[in-house]
């Protein structure tokens, strides 16, 4: 018997092939049936926290440059863009003006930007100089000990997390600079949803 004969024999025989089709349908259908998921309520409701799309954004509380604190979970109900950056990072510098423009245009529609400076690998003075240079008007938080960067599994700067009004991460962009189109499209997608 040559290597081609066995499958060909099956294909030649219409009855045998039809039986194969029925067997595949039954087995595939049974596998699909047993791998069905329970209803969302039974599965536990809200997704767990993890720094990727579809998961709840891990919560944090950080001090702000210039005083005060910000807690991410207290911002529910707004579209939040968390941007991790450092003053020495060229793509961070390149994309920050576009972020500021988007914030100015969309803050009244419910956008909040939280720019988290990775202070443990930067300095507070350099961060303040950067904010003044670009005239940033959104809150700038200071990750002094790297806890937030660690929790968000920071692998490259800048890293940006687009978070919806329910606190779910909708998109993650690592590296940059992000185009203005990307920033606005991601925000618009979240803002268009029912509050």
């Amino acid at each position: 018997m040559t290597k081609r004969q066995l499958p060909d024999t099956w294909l030649q025989n219409r009855k045998r092939w039809t039986a194969l089709l029925i067997a595949v349908f039954l087995l595939g259908g049974a596998w699909t049936q047993i791998s069905r998921l329970p209803p969302p309520d039974a599965a536990g409701g809200a997704p767990p926290a993890s720094p990727r799309e579809g998961f709840a954004a891990p919560d944090f509380t950080l001090e702000l440059l210039g005083g005060g604190t910000v807690t991410l979970s207290e911002l529910r109900g707004q579209a939040v863009m968390v941007n991790l950056w450092a003053s020495w990072c060229p793509p961070c510098r390149a994309e920050m003006p576009a972020i500021e423009r988007a914030y100015q245009d969309l803050k009244d529609d419910g956008l909040l930007v939280v720019a988290v400076n990775t202070t443990y690998q930067d300095s507070e003075a350099a961060a303040a100089g950067f904010v003044a240079e670009f005239g940033l008007t959104f809150p700038v938080a200071l990750d002094r000990n790297g806890a937030v960067s660690n929790r968000y599994q920071l692998r490259g700067l800048p890293s940006t997390y687009f978070i919806d009004r329910q606190g779910i991460i909708r998109s993650v962009v690592v590296g940059g600079p992000m185009s203005e189109g990307l920033i606005r499209a991601k925000i618009e997608e979240i803002l268009k949803e029912t509050p």
Binding site: S171, V173, M178, G181, L182, R184
Partner: peptide
Amino acid sequence: RFLSVYLESPLSLLALNPQT
């Protein structure tokens, strides 16, 4: 899908971001 955004910044069409 985001026509107004791209009309405002058409150069974003050429951006390397795979997310768009």
